[in-house]
Write a protein that binds this DNA or RNA. Structure first.
Length: 194
DNA sequence: CAATAGATCATCT
DNA sequence: GATGATCTATTGC
């Protein structure tokens, strides 16, 4: 399966978010299919970290597309984002959940208390620890490695559910979260959307 | 099942 | 000095 080219990321964050569902995230012997993402737009999106302008932390988001933006949150977790849009135009996609495909035994070692495989990468903090991704991957090129995104099976439009983003106070009604309908690895969904 | 508290720190005011 | 793009354990219905 081919690695997604840089062109894939050089478009509006909303579009990339939608198309990232079903693609395969690979890091070493660990791999998973993307089941849930959120788009974060430019400086007018008050829920995005670029809303307060260009700072040291948000520098990569303004750079060329196809790179990793990893940041630390709540004193506990790292979250993985993909930089989108052409250079100079800020926008990124947060990867919230994966369905584990390879290296499940390795992932299980990171969180031994988790029994069901599809919970291993369910949530932004969980998937980074399971995939062993951290701030040392800040700025990594996803078309070059060690972390790459490969083309996966296409997801039908009818299987994509769109909702507001999780855990944001500002712009809380913007429908920028995308997930695969009925997938058990999705981190949170209304009880009747299975 | 829903609500709540605690852990813990880089970044920004 | 306050604040999160979170997770887990625990409590209370």
């Amino acid at each position: 399966m081919p690695v997604l080219p840089r062109d894939f990321y050089a478009r509006p964050a909303v579009e990339v978010a939608r198309l990232m569902l079903g693609q395969i995230l690979v890091h070493g012997r660990r791999a998973g299919r993307i089941t849930e993402v959120e788009a974060y737009l430019g400086e007018h999106d008050l829920a995005a970290q670029v809303a307060r302008g260009r700072t040291g932390r948000t520098e990569v988001i303004y750079g060329p597309p196809g790179h990793a933006y990893v940041y630390f949150i709540y004193g506990m977790h790292d979250c993985l984002n993909v930089v989108t849009e052409p250079e100079g135009s800020p926008g990124c996609v947060l990867i919230r959940a994966l369905e584990p495909l390879c290296g499940i035994e390795l992932m299980r070692r990171e969180s031994p208390s988790v029994t069901k495989p599809f919970l291993l990468c369910s949530g932004p903090g969980r998937l980074t620890s399971a995939m062993r991704i951290s701030r040392r991957h800040y700025g990594a090129d996803l078309t070059a490695g060690p972390i790459v995104l490969r083309q996966g099976p296409e997801v039908e439009a009818a299987d994509i559910v769109i909702t507001p983003r999780i855990g944001v106070r500002l712009c809380a009604d913007w429908p920028l979260r995308f997930f695969i309908r009925g997938n058990p690895s999705v981190s949170r969904f209304p009880p009747n959307s299975r």
